[in-house]
């Protein structure tokens, strides 16, 4: 086909020609990644929300929040995508809503609750997310923040994470080498 000819000319190995394994989605893969690139653009937070939107919080507070969420993800053994989605939701929410420092952690756990519902097979309960904040927030507050986030993000919770792309890049880069994808899973 056209694609094959082009790849051959450029001396690039075709990694999308394994039709025998349905898990690899060989016939869809180009459409899938094209859509992922578009969707990445659409679901990207703004780059200057800290200066433009936020009044009470700053970059280092956000960094502290994210570091803490990494620990929460480890504590509850959440998969990497849950963490990546959490950060995506937080930043998208902060791109349009001013949040004060007392409620930044509330936003963090609420976003993590949403992403674990989306991604995990057994998501932690809302009580567990309250507990991990040392019960700084009530269950009702977490649920209310959850609604606020869902409404603001218009339920657009499906977003490509770095892992979606990394898996493909590693496959392309390691085409000639038998590199087990297990190493990637440990990320």
């Amino acid at each position: 086909t056209e694609k094959n000819v082009e790849l051959e000319r450029e001396k690039i190995a075709n990694i999308d020609n394994i039709y025998s394994d349905p898990q690899l989605c060989a016939t869809y893969i180009c459409d899938i990644y094209e859509h992922l690139r578009k969707s990445e653009e659409k679901k990207r937070p703004s780059t200057d929300f800290m200066e433009r939107i936020q009044k009470d919080i700053n970059v280092s507070m956000r960094a502290i929040l994210i570091d803490w969420l990494v620990e929460v993800a480890e504590e509850y053994r959440l998969v990497p995508d849950t963490l990546y989605l959490t950060v995506n939701y937080i930043d998208r929410y902060l791109s349009g809503n001013a949040v004060n420092r007392q409620r930044l952690q509330l936003l963090g756990v609420s976003c993590m609750m949403i992403s674990s519902k989306y991604e995990e097979i057994c998501a932690p309960q809302v009580e567990e997310f309250c507990y991990i904040t040392d019960n700084t927030y009530l269950k009702e507050e977490v649920l209310k923040m959850e609604s606020a986030v869902l409404n603001y993000l218009k339920f657009e919770m499906t977003a490509p994470t770095i892992k979606c792309f990394l898996r493909r890049f590693v496959r392309a880069a390691a085409h000639d080498v038998e590199l087990p994808s297990l190493q990637l899973e440990c990320l």
Binding site: I114, K117, Y118, L150, N151, K154, F155, E156, M157
Partner: peptide
């Protein structure tokens, strides 16, 4: 419900049920 709505939100095709709007 949250999951299904977010899946529906990624789809846009005449032969897929179209979510016009969603609110909480």
């Amino acid at each position: 419900v949250m999951k299904e709505i977010s899946v529906l939100k990624t789809l846009n095709h005449t032969n897929v049920v179209g979510l016009v709007d969603s609110m909480i």
